[in-house]
Amino acid sequence: MAKVKPRVKVPKKASVNEVVTIKTLISHPMESGQRKDKKTGETIPRKIINKFAASFNGEPVFMADIEPSVSANPYIEFQMRIPESGAVRFEWTDDDGSVYDMEKKITVA
């Protein structure tokens, strides 16, 4: 399987209570469980990212329950208010139970 690589775009600096746009992308095949293997005719088992969560200094910010209808390499963009300096933590949960995570720091000037 291709290596799962999360990518996140977060501004490094923000002013107090500024609303920033956060863009996230994770490379993942998002196998829907509907496709069939062309050679064997067997259904390829479902394997998707089923949950995405973003938190800021431990406080939940944004969560998404994801279903097979989301494209491969799921891209999620959302808005967030920055109350203070801290770290945004991103977590993606796979069907097989593994969790891919990433953390980005934001400094409030």
Partner: peptide, 10 residues
């Protein structure tokens, strides 16, 4: 998909 927002959502 279902998106959940919180107090920190801009």
């Amino acid at each position: 998909a279902t998106f959940h927002f919180s107090a920190l959502s801009g």
